[in-house]
Design a protein around this nucleic acid. Structure first.
Lengths: 391, 391
DNA sequence: CACCAACATGAATCAATTG
DNA sequence: GCAATTGATTCATGTTGGT
């Protein structure tokens, strides 16, 4: 592990160097990663200049103007007389798919092998994005529903109130060992696993950026609470968060507040100006201890043999399961004996239950003054000794 | 309008005769619409034999293409009974796409011009289905989220609990003048528009069909409440509801109960037998207006993390008990920190008191202008927001 | 019969380390 | 790189069986 796991101020984690994918052609003129800054320009061109495998987390809020003008307009600018012409629809969807494919491929190149990607969208575009992700080899982890507490009603009464948007969370590849701060999320959620549906208000009021005329600075500014949950779930302090459609910089503001680095790409100078002003006003959470995700510290491995060696259990001692239905005898070498079969605490535990696997530490119990206690208690004794010895 | 709109017993509505799409090649040997019966056989072959433009509503629960790997064990070492049926296995995404395209095209031919289609799926397949719908010229109306009250947990703690599935609601084409019972839905929802996220329990208990051995008759039986909401929203009494993946006939049972006709297509004789027995036991309700399933309600769970996310408490804020004997610090992720130990508000509250359990909401207080107030007051603020969202 | 404890189960793309 | 081993991990709801 890199040292960045130990503090918010540390340098960003570098790629492990192991490339699990086939080698990637890297553009000749890549620049060093411009940490905590906004790159002005076209998303894909800018991505192609970033170093490969340098990003820990990607958050993307791509445009979904499937049939409008702008960057997705047909190349020849020709007029289409029938707007609902099937062929035109196909052209439009195909153009959007090509655009999606291009930016996702460019993003994937700069992701570390264990990086993950979040994309947000609505039913207009999210299906195409999701299918493209699968086609490119991303590994879908969850689709997450942002339930809006205060959605805009459906004024014409012709459909259900469009009260949610969808986020897709995907790893770069199936083999990725991605960051997921399970324990921390659970601790903040009444000690229950966090579900795939999140209830969060729209970005309104003081959080909503306004221009000099009092109009909203960006049409689809996302709430910081949404980004906070994304970053707290799937990144660590010191990680680098890339947002290829930076807009007015919600992802950057939250990254900065939570001790993550950001890299933003944005084409519109107006949005960039708004984002820069916003970022300058962000106060990072100072105390690194508040940022590190609550985690069960990984305990040193203890062999059952050392429990016997240390005399916490004598050879010949009888272990039973909690309800006393199964018995086994401790041998000097730390294996268990059941009749004439010997094996590990796990193997014998699985055997007597007819199961493929078993955690022997919690399954087997010993008698301590009449009370049955799991042998895991004995492991805890050794761990404490070990911890004390290390200071 | 046909007279079928006025009563449950009327004949099914016939096509208006105006074809808004380009002419469709109709198979020579189409049969008359086999109302209220199950067609045994391949989905696409059976669809090709149905008359064109004869269906008012389609509900489809296609294979999800789960792509499961090895076995999954629960923490108690028991096995998860996963979907491992042959009908859910596909060679590749391309094969699944081809399958999807074929059945959707066949379905579209038999839909009336104003008919709509519902498809349900998970993140494994729903993106591909949605994109294919768009490619074929369907017009997406909503994506609807079925939020499960009681989903299966994520046993390994590696992802968010997969707590929802997605339904796509689409018209045959953009010009469709589809059925949407807006006023009825609103009246049944405390006079507010029905949202795109529905909270409904899984199909369990007595509703779940079992075989003679007591095992579930179908691995993915859907709750009747879900189908009831679909049919009440987007069909009228007397309409014909087609289900190309009939399974054990939930859509048919609900259609029959609500005074709609059904046409089911199913390949597996075992499922068909179960469905026939089930359908025979259904009693149609005399007055369909009486049956509006109430949304599942439960006391909303508020996460302390969301109190921090919304800025009601800042990271680093100090919480104390009422008499100021214990202190703990709020972290960014909604856990509390006591020394170097992090945990939930409840766990840390229990820890400082040496008790096995503690209600952190009433135990911990924050300082509000000199006065100590329980953090439960902050929960009340969020609860009010949530109540507004749930209706 | 009431009550409680134990058990069962739901569309699941659900590990990390050692040898 | 692959196989074998170790060991970490669950929420809501309904049913069953015992006192």
């Amino acid at each position: 592990m890199s040292n960045s796991r130990t503090g918010a101020a540390a340098a960003p984690r570098m790629s492990s160097g192991t490339t699990r994918l086939r080698p990637v052609l890297r553009p000749v003129d890549t620049a060093p990663l411009p940490l905590d800054s906004i790159i002005e320009g076209d998303c894909i061109a800018a991505l192609d200049r970033l170093p490969a495998e340098s990003i820990d987390l990607v958050f993307a809020d791509p445009p979904y103007n499937l049939q409008l003008g702008g960057d997705l307009q047909r190349p020849d600018q020709s007029m289409v007389d029938a707007v609902d012409d099937d062929w035109d629809k196909f052209e439009s969807f195909a153009a959007y798919d090509a655009f999606t494919r291009d930016w996702l491929k460019a993003v994937r190149r700069v992701m570390k092998p264990d990086a993950t990607l979040w994309v947000i969208g609505s039913y207009h575009n999210i299906f195409r994005v999701g299918a493209t992700l699968q086609d490119l080899g991303f590994w879908l982890l969850n689709d997450v529903v942002w339930r809006k507490t205060n959605p805009m009603p459906n004024f014409r009464g012709k459909r259900f109130t469009n009260a949610h948007e969808t986020l897709i969370w995907a790893a770069r590849e199936q083999a990725s060992r991605y960051t997921f701060n399970y324990e921390a999320l659970k601790a903040g959620n009444e000690d229950v696993q966090v579900r795939s549906d999140w209830l969060i208000p729209l970005c309104t009021g003081g959080e909503r950026l306004k221009d000099e005329n009092g109009h909203k600075a960006h049409p689809t500014q996302k709430p910081e609470a949404l980004l906070a949950r994304v970053l707290l779930a799937a990144s660590r302090p010191g990680d680098v968060v890339l947002d290829p459609f930076f807009g007015t910089g919600t992802s950057g503001a939250v990254a900065r507040k939570l001790g993550r680095h950001f890299v933003g790409i944005e084409r519109d100078p107006g949005y960039i100006a708004a984002a820069r002003a916003r970022l300058a006003a962000v106060t990072p959470v100072a105390d690194a201890a508040l940022l590190m995700p609550a985690e069960k510290r990984s305990e040193p491995r203890i062999a059952f043999a050392s429990v016997v060696e240390r005399g916490l259990l004598a050879p010949g001692a009888v272990l039973v399961d909690q309800r006393g239905r199964h018995k086994a005898v401790v041998r000097v070498d730390g294996s268990l004996m059941l009749g004439d079969i010997a094996g590990s605490i796990h193997k014998i535990g699985a055997l007597v239950q007819g199961l493929p696997a078993c955690n022997g530490w919690t399954f087997w119990h010993f008698s301590d003054g009449g009370a049955l206690k799991p042998i895991d208690d004995l492991r805890a004794v050794l761990r404490k000794e070990l911890a004390d010895a290390e200071g």
